[in-house]
Simulated scan of single mutants.
Amino acid sequence: MEKEKIHAYCLQLHATTHDYKEEWQADRYHIGEKMYAMIGGKGRLVLTLKCEPARAEVLRESYNSIIPGYYMNKTHWNSIYMDATEVPMDLVEQLIQHSYELVYSKLTKKAQKEIGLKETN
C-alpha cells in the first residue's frame, strides 16, 4: 500500500478533513470532526480504520497483516500493515469507505445534515 494513494483516496471522500498529529506521528482523516482513518505507528506504519466488530474478526482471521487496532479500541478498530502485500488495494479502499460510513452514521443528525453526505455508489 502506498501512503500517497491512501491519502488521495481519503481526501476524495465527501467532507473529509486531514490533519497531522505530531505527538502521534500520524496522519488523521475525519468526517464531522470524528476520525475514521489514521496512518502512523512507530517503526512499521499501519493504516487504522473503524470496522464493524464481526467483520473485523473475519478480516483478522483472513489476513495476517490485519490486526486489532493499534492503540485503539480492539473491538471496533483494525490496523493494516502498510507494507502488506497480501491485502489488495480494492479491499483497502472498501475498508476505508466502510470506516467512513460507520463514523458518519454515528454523528448527530444535525452534523449529518450539515455535511450533506452524497450517495457513494
Rank of each mutant, 00 (worst) to 15 (best):
M1G: 00
E2L: 10
K3M: 01
K3H: 07
K3I: 11
K5E: 14
H7F: 09
H7D: 15
A8S: 12
Y9D: 04
L11Y: 11
Q12S: 07
L13V: 11
L13I: 04
H14E: 06
A15T: 05
A15C: 10
T16H: 11
T16D: 09
T17I: 03
T17D: 13
H18Q: 03
H18C: 11
D19Q: 09
Y20M: 09
K21Y: 01
W24S: 08
W24E: 11
R28W: 05
R28C: 06
R28D: 06
R28L: 01
Y29M: 08
H30E: 03
G32L: 01
K34H: 12
K34W: 13
M35P: 13
Y36K: 07
Y36H: 08
Y36C: 11
A37K: 03
A37W: 04
M38V: 13
M38H: 12
G40I: 06
K42M: 08
R44N: 13
R44E: 14
R44A: 10
L45Q: 14
L47V: 13
T48N: 15
T48L: 10
L49E: 09
C51T: 15
C51P: 14
E52T: 01
A54W: 02
A56F: 05
A56I: 00
A56E: 05
E57Q: 14
E57A: 14
L59V: 07
L59M: 09
L59F: 09
R60K: 14
R60S: 00
E61N: 05
E61D: 10
S62W: 03
Y63W: 00
N64M: 03
S65D: 15
I66T: 00
I66C: 00
I66K: 00
I67W: 07
G69A: 07
G69M: 00
Y70W: 10
Y70S: 11
Y71C: 01
N73I: 03
N73S: 03
T75I: 05
T75F: 07
T75V: 11
H76P: 00
W77H: 06
S79Q: 04
S79C: 14
Y81Q: 13
Y81S: 02
M82S: 06
M82G: 10
D83S: 13
D83H: 12
D83R: 13
A84T: 15
A84C: 08
A84Q: 09
E86P: 00
E86T: 10
M89I: 15
M89L: 14
D90V: 11
D90Q: 13
V92H: 04
V92T: 06
V92M: 13
E93S: 04
L95S: 02
I96P: 08
Q97P: 05
Q97I: 13
Q97Y: 12
S99T: 15
Y100H: 04
E101V: 11
L102G: 09
L102F: 04
L102I: 15
V103C: 04
S105Y: 03
K106H: 08
L107K: 08
L107A: 15
T108H: 12
K109H: 07
K109I: 12
K109E: 10
A111C: 10
Q112F: 00
K113I: 02
E114P: 01
G116K: 01
K118E: 14
E119D: 15
E119M: 06
T120H: 11
N121V: 10
